[in-house]
Simulated scan of single mutants.
Amino acid sequence: MEIQWPLALFTLLTSMGGCLFLFVGINEFTRKSSVSGFVPAIVALVLAVVGGLCSVAHLAHVDRMLNALSHPTSGIFVEAVLIGLLAVAVIVYLVCVKREIAGGIKASAVCGMVFGVALSFMAGHSYIMAAIDTWNTMLLPTGYLLTALPMGSSLYWALAGREEAASKFMGVCTLVCGVLGFLGAAAYAAVAGAFSGESMMLAVGALVLAGVVPAVIGALGTKTASPALPWVAFVCAVIGALCYRVMMWVVFTTPFNFFGVM
């Protein structure tokens, strides 16, 4: 199947924003960084909104978007609701930070964390369908979420992890997220048969760039404080996550294959 770039970018950017806010919320409870979560939260909001616009671009016409949103059981409807809920939570968080409302900060952070993780997972879950053999597995959305985590951890590290304690903590987080990203990409690639043919380079790219590299850089970050490390991890994580999202289109198996039709 032809690669649907608007959808690939939609899932990439919204997941990036959701997982970035996940670590904004984590810091509100761990207080490893004294840097305000205001700027990272704004970045997360922008990523979620821009990602949502990419989804609209895929449908090409406004009326198609409205028709899709009129069906509450559709994947597009669920994704749109989650983007809206995430955006509201982030906006409330920003207001509470500005007004120094401690209770509101933590409550909105928790809500945003939940919606961000849910959005990252559901962005992949919408593709599950019995008619497409290589998509009909829960490992697909699981990989979506797990390959998004290194993007969120490394971006938050780059934006708010300048202090030594925060840098080491985010190094550990990025190490763990890199391992999870590797496992998520490897599991789906193995089940979908992506380690052969045209998809092999994409599968390897997802494993290495969304898994191995962030994990290694995260480990280095626990010992060496360098402002360049999180940015390198972030760029690699983004490319690796994109490889994963493109890979699913390359391994696409049509229903005709079950009837021996060429």
Rank of each mutant, 00 (worst) to 15 (best):
A109L: 03
C111A: 15
G112E: 11
F115L: 00
V117D: 12
V117M: 09
A118I: 10
L119F: 10
S120H: 02
F121P: 03
F121I: 05
F121H: 10
A130R: 11
A131H: 09
I132R: 15
I132A: 09
N136Q: 07
N136F: 12
L139Q: 12
L145I: 05
L145M: 11
T147S: 09
T147W: 11
L149D: 10
M151C: 05
G152F: 05
G152D: 08
S153L: 03
S153H: 10
S154R: 07
W157N: 01
A158M: 00
A160N: 01
R162I: 07
E164I: 09
E164P: 01
A165I: 08
A165D: 13
M170V: 04
G171H: 09
G171R: 06
G171W: 13
T174M: 02
V176Y: 06
C177Q: 03
G178E: 09
G178A: 05
G178M: 01
L180G: 00
G181Q: 11
G181V: 00
A185V: 02
A185D: 13
A190E: 13
V191D: 15
V191L: 13
A192G: 05
A192E: 06
A192H: 13
G193M: 04
A194I: 04
L202Y: 15
L202W: 15
L202K: 14
V204T: 10
A206L: 03
A206N: 07
L207H: 11
V208I: 15
V212D: 04
V212P: 00
P214L: 06
A215F: 12
A219S: 14
L220H: 02
G221E: 13
T222C: 15
K223S: 13
T224N: 02
P227S: 09
L229N: 03
L229H: 02
L229I: 06
P230Y: 00
P230M: 04
W231D: 01
V232D: 06
F234W: 08
C236G: 05
C236I: 07
V238Y: 03
V238R: 00
A241T: 15
C243I: 07
C243S: 09
Y244T: 01
V246Q: 06
